[in-house]
Amino acid sequence: MTVTVKVAEAKAHLSELLARVEAGEEVIIARGNDPIAVLSRIRKESSIETAIAEIRAMRALAKPVTQEEIRAWRDEGRA
């Protein structure tokens, strides 16, 4: 997934953007409507520690889910 942000927003939310990049997203930084830079993850060797770090970064960005939502997903399409 790719997200585009303005320079001022990138400055104000750099830590959050870096967490998103660590989770696998690509961030385009734009001045006005003109893209000027891309933030993307530097891939390391595959390892269990890297996989765990990526999962934790993705979970940090996820919104909480209620039990009702989980049940609705489970029951979706059932008669």
Rank of each mutant, 00 (worst) to 15 (best):
A51F: 15
A62M: 14
I28H: 13
L18H: 12
L14G: 01
R31A: 03
E54H: 06
R41I: 08
R20I: 02
T4H: 10
S15W: 13
E26Q: 07
A23Q: 11
V5G: 01
E16L: 01
G32V: 00
E49W: 01
I55W: 11
K6I: 04
H13G: 04
A10T: 01
K11W: 10
E9P: 01
L39E: 12
S15A: 15
E45C: 03
I42L: 11
I29D: 03
A30D: 11
L61A: 11
S46T: 04
A19K: 05
R56Y: 15
A10M: 07
G24D: 08
L14Y: 09
R20H: 13
V21S: 01
V5K: 02
P35H: 07
E22D: 12
L17P: 08
G24N: 11
K6P: 09
A57F: 10
A37R: 10
V3K: 05
E16G: 02
L18A: 06
L39K: 13
E49P: 00
P35D: 05
S15Q: 15
A37D: 15
L17W: 05
S47K: 10
N33T: 06
E26A: 00
R41P: 06
R31W: 04
V5W: 01
R20C: 05
R41Y: 06
E49V: 00
E16H: 07
K6H: 13
G24Y: 08
G24M: 05
A12W: 11
E9M: 01
R20E: 14
L14S: 01
S15C: 08
A8V: 02
I48G: 12
M58I: 05
R31N: 08
A12G: 09
S46V: 03
A60K: 12
A23F: 06
S46R: 14
